[in-house]
């Protein structure tokens, strides 16, 4: 073994955020989804024949105009992977802004890396579009509005498998 430790190594963000917001005086903690049953679909064909899609929680780049940017709400979107986006908007998301940055899109959505895997034949192809889904306080909005629209886009683009990465 490398070390002995008295606590688990990885952070519990459920605990950490509950304690942080409690310290700010928010007495009713956020309730995170928990399911006992988990759906599972095995891959139906070899990856080398699959079209693979990408989903991110990052938003579209904001308009340069500050006023226009203020009024551009976070929304569900689909955008071409070619050309790959050079930047995506992450300022309003929950991530560690002191420890790191998000200037390299591939550090949170592997759009160029997946393109390379398509070129090398590891996957059949990459989806023509990636999709952005806003992280939403409201789980019902995610379940009833965003998830069905994403499913529709996945079907339109003929996807077999999807890589989802949350910041």
């Amino acid at each position: 073994m490398d070390q002995l430790r008295t606590h688990r190594s990885f952070i519990s963000y459920i605990d950490r955020s509950r304690e942080y917001y409690a310290a700010q005086g928010y007495t009713k903690p956020y309730e995170w989804p928990h399911y006992d049953n988990v759906p599972f679909t095995p891959l139906k064909k070899p990856l080398a024949q699959c079209r693979v899609g990408l989903i991110t929680t990052a938003g579209k780049p904001k308009p340069a105009d500050q006023l226009a940017a203020m009024f551009s709400p976070r929304a569900l979107y689909a955008q071409p992977v070619n050309p790959a986006p050079e930047h995506l908007f992450t300022d309003d998301l929950f991530w560690d802004k002191k420890a790191t940055h998000t200037k390299d899109v591939d550090s949170f959505m592997p759009v160029n890396r997946m393109g390379e895997y398509a070129a090398s034949g590891r996957i059949g192809s990459i989806s023509p579009s990636f999709y952005g889904v806003p992280t939403d306080y409201s789980q019902s909005r995610t379940l009833e509005r965003y998830a069905p629209q994403i499913l529709e886009w996945c079907r339109e683009d003929g996807l077999d498998a999807i890589v989802l990465s949350a910041l």
Binding site: F10, I11, S12, Y13, I14, D15, W32, P33, Y35, V38, P39, F40, T41, P42, L43, K44, I55, T57, P110, V133, T135, Q139, T142, L143, Y146, A147, P148, I150, L151, C154, L159, D160, A161, I162, V163, L164, S165, A166
Partner: peptide, 25 residues
């Protein structure tokens, strides 16, 4: 994001989530 992945799996699409918030996922 996990909710979207679950919806896709329930509808016949294979997914993988890549993330750093282990407990939430």
């Amino acid at each position: 994001m996990s909710l979207v992945a679950r919806h896709l799996e329930a509808n016949g699409l294979s997914t993988v989530v890549i993330g750093s918030a282990r407990d939430i996922v």
